[in-house]
């Protein structure tokens, strides 16, 4: 059985994910949050703007910080999901290859409503190209700021690198403990994956597109 995105989306959206009396949403081995994308965007782009206003030379550092935050987020969020009971029950039985871990995760991401992600190309252990439509980062950016000359989907971009690192560098299929040590080991490896947002709706492209490759081939 190959990854059936429709089944995954229908199952996840039918789970009735909502806060319990503690105000938490424990699901997929995580505490999920349900909050306004605009709120996240305000903080993310606010950090970028504040650093750039301080000194335009800090632009690269600001992007590096936001990307690092995305790497940490992907490591724990995607890693947690791929180690969860829900994954075992719903996605694992559909998995036939290591690449299906990437496709399965993409289906779960779509079910959560983080945008419409589509794997355009996946070369095992080498390269991932993902198209993203309705990215809340780019649409949120354009609501508040003029069109830019650079990409703005920092969380999605770092997330895609994180996914490839989990599958091909950290071997999430063996269910390692998602410790800080493992994070450092995986992401500081000179052969680990990094993502580049080649197209972004915030700079006028029709959609966003991420190309994920190893830093050193």
């Amino acid at each position: 059985m190959a990854i059936d995105e429709r089944v995954i989306v229908e199952t996840v959206t039918g789970m009735g994910l909502a806060g319990n009396e503690e105000g938490l949403i424990p699901a997929f081995g995580l505490y999920l949050t349900n909050h306004y994308a605009d709120f996240y965007n305000r903080i993310s782009f606010g950090v970028l703007g504040a650093l750039v206003r301080e000194n335009p030379e800090l632009t690269e550092d600001a992007v590096a910080l936001l990307t690092e935050a995305a790497h940490v987020c992907a490591f724990h969020t995607f890693g947690g999901i791929m180690s969860s009971v829900e994954w075992d029950a719903l996605v694992q039985p559909m998995i036939e290859s290591r690449e299906d871990w990437v496709r399965g995760m993409m289906a779960v991401v779509n079910a959560f409503g983080w945008g419409r992600f589509r794997v355009a190309e996946l070369l095992p252990d080498e390269r991932l190209v993902v198209e993203l439509r309705d990215s809340y980062e780019s649409s949120g950016y354009l609501e508040s700021y003029p069109r830019t000359d650079g990409p703005r989907c920092f969380l999605a971009n770092g997330g895609m690198a994180g996914l490839m690192n989990l599958v091909y560098q950290g071997d999430i299929t063996r269910r390692p403990a998602l410790t800080e040590e493992l994070y450092r080991e995986v992401f500081s490896d000179p052969r680990s994956f990094r993502s580049r947002e080649r197209l972004c709706a915030a700079k006028g492209d029709s959609h966003c597109e991420f190309v994920v490759e190893r830093m050193q081939g």
Binding site: P26, A27, G29, V85, E86, D88, A89, P93
Partner: peptide, 10 residues
Amino acid sequence: TVAPRAGRAI
């Protein structure tokens, strides 16, 4: 949370 066929719960 129970995945009965996988024999796993949290």
